[in-house]
């Protein structure tokens, strides 16, 4: 199900907790699985549950609670734009409109070619550089006006 590399990383996470509390590593394990698979399918969650010796539905509870876990295919690049108050005051709504227009999709939708997904996000803790946009949960882009958005899309498209 997961590569030896991913399993090694999950084992490192498990090692941080007492041996009888492997399930403490569930969030990290899900993040690692998602990074490798792109999103969390039900059988991926089932695998993580069995790997950590916890009930499968308990893994589902965690995966559905946090919105950085994706439970459906996300496209090649997932763009999560913060629409929290500081970002909104600094032009996040315009940036979101621009993204919707350029990509032709709404929030939580994937472009027809499968290359982009647009998602609405919550505060990412970088309000000073609002509006903030996150690419694939890992790369943070700041001060996202129209020009910088266009440049980002060009870069991701190339």
């Amino acid at each position: 199900m997961l590569s030896p590399e991913a399993l090694r990383r999950i084992d490192t996470e498990i090692a941080k907790y007492p041996a009888d509390q492997k399930q403490s590593a569930v969030m990290a394990a899900l993040a690692i699985a998602q990074q490798e698979k792109g999103w969390l399918a039900e059988d991926t969650m089932a695998f993580v549950a069995d790997y950590l010796g916890m009930p499968q539905v308990a893994v589902l509870e965690v995966a559905t609670f946090y919105n950085m876990y994706d439970l459906s295919p996300v496209g090649k690049s997932k763009l999560t734009i913060c629409t929290g108050l500081p970002c909104a005051l600094s032009g996040a709504d315009e940036a979101a409109d621009h993204l919707r227009e350029k990509l032709g999709v709404g929030f939580s939708e994937v472009t027809a070619d499968g290359s982009f997904m647009l998602k609405e996000g919550e505060c990412m803790g970088a309000c000073g550089d609002a509006p903030v946009l996150l690419v694939n949960n890992r790369r943070m882009c700041v001060r996202m006006n129209k020009e910088r958005i266009d440049a980002l899309l060009d870069e991701l498209n190339s």
Partner: peptide
């Protein structure tokens, strides 16, 4: 399920207004 039956088959998925009781798959 967790405490008496010993098998957690039902869980709460989602959060806040989106919470719902369901089984895995």
């Amino acid at each position: 399920g967790q405490e008496i039956a010993g098998i957690m088959e039902l869980g709460v998925a989602g959060r806040g207004e989106h919470s719902e009781i369901l089984t895995f798959m």
